[in-house]
Every structure is written in structure tokens, then in C-alpha cells.
Amino acid sequence: MIRFASLAALLLLWQIGASLSDPHRLPGPVAVFEKIYEEAVSGALFSNLAITLARVAAAFALAMSFGAAIGYAMGRNRLADRLLDPWVVTLLNLPALVVIVLAYVWAGLTEVAAIGAVALNKLPNAIVVVREGARALDPHLEDMAEVFRFSPAARFKDLVLPQLAPYLAAATRSGLSLVWKIVLVVELLGRSNGVGFEINMAFQLFDMKLLLAYALPFVALMLGVETFLVQPLERHVSRWRRGVSRRLDRV
């Protein structure tokens, strides 16, 4: 209810701001929603959103799987940590734009370069977070698993994964918001479709209606993924922290 009121207030502010200024600089909500409708009917909105979403998913999956594997290895093995740490620090401090431009220069204006550049931007962060989790694995539980001769599958599923879950969730959260933003830059610089490309077009044409007509649904999509995918997943992996069994008992 409060969220709804706050959203309504934002719309109102927008309307007031728009009526006070040049409609080319800040079009009003009605004009923007008309534009969104127009783009939706033509199908362009959905195809661009879908393409951007696919790039986000691919880059995110790549960065998370490599990041988790490398981070785990570095957290568990001193030699691997010493060997790879300078690389991670370098990558961590390399500006996103440099990575993107280099990727496009070396691999051409291709899909592989685009997704690879985004993944590479997210990778060091995933590594660092998962490494922290791997270092925090409880040696007492490990001894227990050793004594009871846990199978490798049980070790992974019942011992390691639940301990890494909060770290993976943190990496997912921070990672998604980073990937969303960088994907737009990558599209703007070297792709001919997607939300970032459309925003670039709108900028070139100085069409603020078009710009907002892509920016708003994009933000809505991000929020949707966050609320309906990331948060439930986080709750699911940490459900044992709350008294879930009590509730099940009553059923």
C-alpha cells in the first residue's frame, strides 16, 4: 500500500515536472505510456527486451559458473590463491569500458565479444565472494563428513553447497545489478538490437519519449526478476535458518 502510494507520488511529480518543461526534454507519463504501447504493439519492445534479457542470462551464467569454480579453488588451495590473486585484483580494477572496447577490438563486433565482455566484468566479483565462502567452510563439519565417509555427491549437495549458498546469493544479487547495467553499455557500443541499442537510437534522434519507453519497461523487468526470482531463491536457500519444520509439523 505504501509502495503503491510512493509510486503514485513519483508519477505525479513526473507529471508536474513535464508540464513545467519542454515536452521534448521531459515528456509526460501519458505520452510515454502511449509510446510504450506503440512499441509493444509493433513487437519491437518485446523482442528488444528478450534479446537483452538473453544476453544478461548468458553473461551472468558464464560469470557465475566460472567465478564459483575459480573462487572455490582459490578459497581451498593456497597455491591457486597466490597464483591467481594478482589476476583477480587486476581484473577487479579494470574499468568496464576498457574490457568492453578491448573485447570488441580483439573479437570484433560479435555476440561472443559482447557477452564475454559482460561476463568478464562480473567474473572477479563472483570469484572474490565465492572465495570468501570457501574459506569460511566449517572444518568441524568436514571432519564429520570424513568420518562418516560422505560420498562426493553428498559432500557437494549437503555439506558444501548449503554453506556457500549465502555467498552465491550475495554474488547473484550484486552480480545481476552489475550485469544489467553493463549489458546496456555493450549493446550501445557494438550491437544492433536490444534495449541499449534502442536507447542509443533515441539519444541520436533526441527522442526522449522513445528513450523512456525503453528505459521504464527495462527497469520494470529488472525489478520483476529481482522480486520474483532472486528473492524467492534467497529465501529458499536460507529456509533452514527459520523454524520451517515447525510450520510443516502443524500441517
Binding site: 562418516f148 560422505f150 555439506l159
Partner: peptide, 22 residues
Amino acid sequence: MVFQEPRLLPWRSVIDNIRIAA
């Protein structure tokens, strides 16, 4: 083995803790 502390898996129920070890 029973360790000095119980060392149960906090994310598994009592019965699953036993099932996983045995």
C-alpha cells in the same frame, strides 16, 4: 563417532542428518 560438539548439518532435519551419514 560422536564429536565433542554435536556437529549436525544445520540445514538438514534430524532424520536427514542421519540418512545422509548412513
